[in-house]
Structure formats: structure tokens, C-alpha cells
Design a binder for these strands. Sequence first.
RNA 1: GGAGGAGUGGCAGAGCGGUUGAAUGCACCGGUCUUGAAAACCGGCAUACCGCAAGGUAUCGGGGGUUCGAAUCCCUCCUCCUCCGCCA
Length: 425
Amino acid sequence: MLTLNYIKDNKEAIVKGLKTRNFSDEAIQVIDQIAELDVKRKSNQASLDACLAEVNLISKEIGKLYQSGQANEAEAAKAKVATIKQRSKVLDEEQQSIASQLDELLLSIPNVPHPSVPAGNTDEDNVVVTPWTSEVMPLDGGLPHWELAKKYNLIDFEAGVKITGSGFPLFRGKGARLERALINFFLDEATAAGYEEIIPPLLVNADSARATGQLPDKEGQMYYAEKDDLYLIPTAEVPVTNIYRDVILKESDMPIKLTGYTPCFRREAGSYGADVKGLNRVHQFDKVEIVQISHPDKSYQVLDDMVEHVKGLLAKLELPYRILRLCGGDLGFTSALTFDFEVYSAAQDRWLEVSSVSNFETYQANRLKLRYRDADGKKHLAHTLNGSALALARIVAAILENNQVEDGIKMPKALVPYTRFELIN
RNA sequence: GGAGGAGUGGCAGAGCGGUUGAAUGCACCGGUCUUGAAAACCGGCAUACCGCAAGGUAUCGGGGGUUCGAAUCCCUCCUCCUCCGCCA
């Protein structure tokens, strides 16, 4: 969330940002409500502090009175404290109510979009920044991946349905091998680019989910283990970024570069039909995530680096892709600027989102309480960024569909050392 | 799962109802001394909020309670350690 000070000092910028996100004028009034509540909060806190100070002072006197045997005077002082405490109790309740109202309002404000974020309502309005990049042109048509999966016995969707339910694919044989090859390939590439590999827990507590912004606004997206009050991670971003929750870094610690492979779990209630066919949208998928914690001055350079990294992966996989700059309406709640990567699927004649690379600036860091100390010893919020490098299920779909040759499916060269086979047939 | 023990500042570690936001040591920063360094000595050194400041308030694993007053007593949750049980 945004900090109170930022909101007070940058009202214009926030209002403009909320408009980019298509917030209504009524919704934008929260900014003023927050400012008013904050004034109330300060004056109430001052009164409360004064009360408590008085109680503390008298209590010390009572101690001295008892020690010097002046019990009567002490009793009188106690009575005085009792009246003050009645007042302080009221003030305290008031303060707690103000704090929770303020918190609720603060949580309702999304991140301020970067100036380069285009206006727009839906994914139709996203701006294509890299139109088409591929050395190989895909075949026209061909079979969609769910048919290829069946033909070559790579993915058994029915078995997944029986074992768990719809949206839980079961990979087998060369399909499983391809999945594992991709995971290893992505991790090796990230490691070569200087990212430290992490294997995090797959369940997280509410504090962690809140810190990266999944709670409260995306609660319904996560699987929840009620008995233990834990959430299945929707992305490695959650556990990996939370490593640095409540941490004060040295300036020289940054940038911190982390990568992690995890399965990702998403409830994704709602949509049915062609959009969710096969691997297009599943409840469990594998993903290699890259995360960076950056100095605020460098974060946009870091974002560019991460975009370049993802470009490199897609180039090595010889997949045709385009990059989109997300418009205000499609931008994630916590993000300031996001680039989506989409891979073209000839068989389905559509673009599949395979990566999303974002700069959250201080928005996550504020919830995380992730700060660094500058040369003068002053503390500032760091910037956090992350991106998929890459999301597996759809990449598998794209590789299968785009590499159909007469006698099977040809693996991209870069992947062969990992798959140890060149052809699926 | 059962039985015990423990959680205090960056680390180690005292305090176990009153002037303790917290002794002491180490680490760290500044200074004196020195040609320089070490040693020695002097000073500084938690976080958040409010305040121009002086200063005030809160925080001794989290939450709640008792009390005029809680790091200290009670309840509860969490974490760690030891032993037993179970187990990939």
C-alpha cells in the first residue's frame, strides 16, 4: 500500500493515477477521507498520549509514596488515576477504530501507475511494444496442444480429473520430461544471469499473503487450508519476496536477485470454454519466478533487465512472442508498470500470456516493511520487482503447437540437452 | 501426538512488580593518543508514531488480562530446545 506521507504529499499524482485506472470520482474521494482521518488520528493520539503520560507520572509518585510510608496520599492518587483511565479508555477505543478505518482505506488504494502506463479499460487497450519477434514462423494451423497431448500420450487430463478435478493436468512420459526440462532450463538461465535459486515453502501464512498483496483483495484466488490457517501459494513471488519482510538492508546489499521454481495454485473460479481448454488455464501449473529487490533509483533499469531476460528465454525457445505494456485498466492492483509477454499459438490462432514482469516500486515494500539504510543512516523503502521466467503450462502448449513437423514435434535446440530427445513421436 | 525447558537490543547475556527502554560484554560508528595501526581511554549506538523543539507515547516472541504501576504475575497462541511416541 501507499504510505500516508506519500498520499499527503502527492495528492495530484495519485488522483491522476487513479483516473488512469478508471476509478470513479467518488472512489477518488478516499484521498480526502484519508487526509481527514489522519488529522483525527494525530489529535486523538496526542490526547491519548497526554493521558497516559499523566498516569505514568502519577504511578511513579505512588511508588515513592508507598516507599516513604504515605499510604493515604497514595490511595488518593490511585483514585485520581482511575478517572484519567476512564478517559484514556475512551480515547484508546476511538484510536483503534480510527486506525482500522484508515487501514481499510489505505488498502483500497492501488499503486500509482507509472507515467508511461497507457489509459484504457481492458486488455484490448494494452499497447504492443514489441510487435513480433521470431526467427521461425510457425506453421499454419496444426493440432491444438490438447490433441497433440493425447496423440503422443504427453498429458492425461482425464486422469487429473479423476484424481483431483478439472484443471489439474497429469503429465506423463515425454510430456513430464518436457515439463522438467523446461524447469531446469529456466532455473539454469536465471542462475547464469545472477539470480540465487530458492526452494520456498508452498504454503504461506496470512501475514505473508498480506505483505505481497494477495490479501485482502485476492483472497478468493487462493486455496486455503482452514485447519492450519495457511494458503497455497498462487506464485513463488509470495514466499520468495517475504524472505525480506521486516528487513532493513544495507544499501550495498542491493540489488537482490532471486529465482525459484514452484508449482502455483489458483482457484480461478468462473470462466469456462475455449479459454480454459487444455493447458490454457489450470488450477495447478509450474512456474519459475524471478524477483529483484532494488534501490529506488535503479528499479526501472532493473525492470528493463528483467524484460531482456525473459526475451532471451523466448528467443532460445524459438517461440514467436510480443510484449505488451499493460493499460491502466488491466494493470495489477499492486503494480506501477507491467509488461506482459504473449506467445503466439498458431493452432489456436491466439496469443497466450506466458510472463508478466512488474515493478511495484515501494507499494509491496511498504506492506513488507522492507527498507534499506542509506549512507547517512536514514531508512527508505526499497523497490520490489518480479516476473515469470517463465510460466510453464502455456509454454508447453506453445512449444507443442508451434513445432509440429511431419513426423512429430521437434524440440527447440536449446532444450535438447535438457529433454535428451529431439523429437516427440 | 505426550512430558519438560526456554523466548530480552546486531549478537551474547543480566533483570523476575516501582525512578529499567532495559546492567554488562562483544560488534559497530565518532573522538583522544600515535608517523600510521593496534591497545588504552572518552563519547555514541533499537523501532514506530506525535512534536519546530524540549519532550511525550508504544514496543522485552504475538494477543488478552490482573495492578495505581508489568520485561517481571495470570491466560492463550506461536516459535525454538530436550526426552518419548509416530513417520517419508
